[in-house]
């Protein structure tokens, strides 16, 4: 097990990329740092689960849940839109690599492999969305039960 290459470096890259993405969305600097830490938390969870040998979909689901919980709590505390943190921290999870591989197999002309890769990328996107769905729905439920304003 290679801790540097499997855990530390991906987290570092995620943090830097998150900060740069925050600039694109015109978020103020201290919020970007907070969002970057959220990205690192999810990446850390993802890497650890992956090393443990968990199912890939579970890894993505758990990472998306972690991001959502972090964003919801922080947004409530600092009274800012949840989006501000969620947007940035979720981008490193986007299965860009898998989509690219699907596209490459399509060029190669292997339709069966293309379908397989597409389903793979889509199911990853789906499990990320489900993670966000699950947490956000629970938060909405909590808000209704406690009758708190946004």
């Amino acid at each position: 097990m290679d801790i540097l290459n499997d855990i530390i470096l991906p987290c570092l890259y995620t943090f830097i990329a998150s900060i740069a993405f925050g600039v694109q969305f015109n978020i103020k600097f201290h919020h970007i740092i907070a969002a970057g830490i959220g990205g690192v938390i999810s990446q850390l969870l993802f890497s650890v689960l992956e090393l443990e040998g968990s199912n890939e979909m579970i890894c993505y689901f758990a990472a998306a849940c972690a991001i959502s919980i972090y964003s919801e709590i922080l947004a409530r505390r600092l009274k800012v839109p949840v989006n501000m943190y969620l947007v940035i921290s979720i981008i490193p999870l986007v299965p860009g690599g898998y989509m690219y591989k699907a596209m490459i197999t399509l060029i190669g002309g292997d339709i069966q492999l293309f379908a397989e890769k597409c389903v793979h990328a889509l199911s990853i996107a789906g499990s990320i969305a489900m993670g966000v769905f699950a947490v956000s729905s629970l938060v909405r439920l909590y808000r209704v039960l406690t009758k708190k304003a946004i």
Partner: peptide, 25 residues
């Protein structure tokens, strides 16, 4: 491969994807 994936990640419509999920919820 890595060059293309890396540079295309700048074009990922992050805000659109997040808003899509949150609108559905």
């Amino acid at each position: 491969d890595t060059v293309i994936i890396g540079s295309l990640m700048t074009l990922v419509p992050g805000i659109t994807l997040t808003n899509c999920m949150r609108d559905f919820i």
